[in-house]
Simulated assay, not measured.
Amino acid sequence: MRPILVFCLPAIGDFIRCHAAIQIIAERFPGQSIDVVTSRLAAPLARLMPHVRKVWVAEKHWKPGLKERARLARELRKENYQAAYMLTSSTKASLVPWLARIPERIGYPREFQFGMVNRLPAGWLKSMVAFGSRKTRLAEQVCAIARRGERPAEDGPLPAPQLVVSPEELAGWRQRNGIDAARPVIALYTSDFANKRSWPMERFVSIARDHAARGWSVWLVGGPRERQAAAEIRAHLPEAIDFTSTPDIAEAMCQIAASTVFLGVDGGISHAAGALGGPCVLIYGSNRAYLHGPVNAQVIFLEPPISTPGWVENTRAVSEDRVREALATAIRKHAPQFA
């Protein structure tokens, strides 16, 4: 059977959301190999995704990029793919499977790449012109492409993206880093405190102190954007462990998978925490969790109260008490030994 290629979105959170579509494709074509194309940043996560055989890297900002895309197309042509699912709407991305002569190229012609995309899902025009409350979520859009626009037999929930860190890999990571598996851990993902999506620094510190006083370890996870925030938290809580200088995103997945509970804000790392399946509490601005949050069932979302002014994007109106209650619920349900 000829393999299938899936062009995924480049940002970490969006790439993880694409795994919902990959699961649908794997169910439709059991036994067929599925490869993905994504950015260099997101590519290391592909090996943690069930059903994915191989990952190709396509940089997002190739300028002008024709030479690089033609080179990638020549490599793809050798694989003899039967179909390419275009979960990204970029014309630059659609150019690659067209140059690779993949016979079936499925997706919405959002940048009017007719011809490069030659199989349009049912209802594609209605989806393209939808706006406001009628516009479908990104997770729903990629699943619609995977289903070719057909509704599932039963209108159930979207497939939940999955990232799987093996027990052996997790045990090796703990051993290399001297982590005591018996000690509970709260992982904090803050984003940049100057970012309106974040939560006030003093509240993160307060929650961290509560857990440290009960014998928990406090881990600060993320990347370059979170390093200053991690330094500010450690200035108030020196015992917190700063993992924001981790050079490999796959190692960051071990950090999250090894934690007992995850507390974070809107961002790609929070999508990873949801996909890894552990207890997860996420703080979002008003009306943003449904559109932009993970669809994993174990995630608890906290937003400003409905009585606050509409379209509140910052999270200050989410109180510490609500966060403490949500963390206690998540731990009691998913890690009762630490409740």
Rank of each mutant, 00 (worst) to 15 (best):
P3E: 08
I4L: 15
L9M: 09
I12A: 02
I16Y: 02
I16P: 00
H19I: 02
H19L: 00
A21E: 03
I22A: 01
I24P: 02
I24Y: 00
I25R: 01
F29Q: 09
F29L: 13
I34A: 06
V37A: 05
V37G: 05
R40C: 03
P44K: 01
P50F: 02
V52F: 06
R53E: 14
K54P: 01
W56V: 13
A58I: 05
E59P: 07
G65Q: 10
L66P: 07
K67E: 09
A70V: 12
E79R: 13
M86F: 01
S89I: 03
S90D: 11
S90R: 14
K92R: 15
K92N: 13
V96M: 03
V96C: 02
P97G: 08
P97T: 08
R101K: 14
I102D: 04
R110S: 13
F112M: 11
Q113M: 07
Q113L: 05
R119H: 12
A122C: 08
S127Q: 13
M128Q: 14
M128E: 10
T136D: 10
T136Q: 13
C143D: 04
C143E: 12
A144R: 15
I145V: 15
G149D: 11
E150Q: 13
E154L: 11
L158F: 09
A160Y: 04
V164P: 03
S166D: 06
P167F: 00
L170Q: 08
L170H: 02
A171P: 03
G172T: 08
Q175R: 14
R176L: 07
D180Y: 08
D180L: 07
R183Y: 10
P184A: 11
Y189C: 15
D192I: 02
K196P: 12
P200C: 05
M201G: 06
E202V: 09
R203E: 11
S206L: 10
L220K: 04
G223P: 06
A235V: 07
H236Q: 15
T246D: 11
I249C: 03
A250Y: 12
E251N: 10
C254S: 15
Q255P: 07
A257W: 05
A257L: 04
A257V: 00
T260M: 05
G264F: 00
V265S: 00
D266S: 11
S270Q: 03
S270E: 05
A272P: 01
A275I: 05
L276P: 12
L276N: 03
I283L: 06
Y284C: 05
N287P: 01
A289I: 03
A289F: 01
L291M: 11
L291S: 11
A297T: 05
Q298F: 00
I306C: 05
G310F: 05
W311R: 14
E320M: 10
R324L: 13
L327S: 04
A328N: 12
T329V: 10
A330S: 11
R332V: 08
H334W: 13
F338M: 05
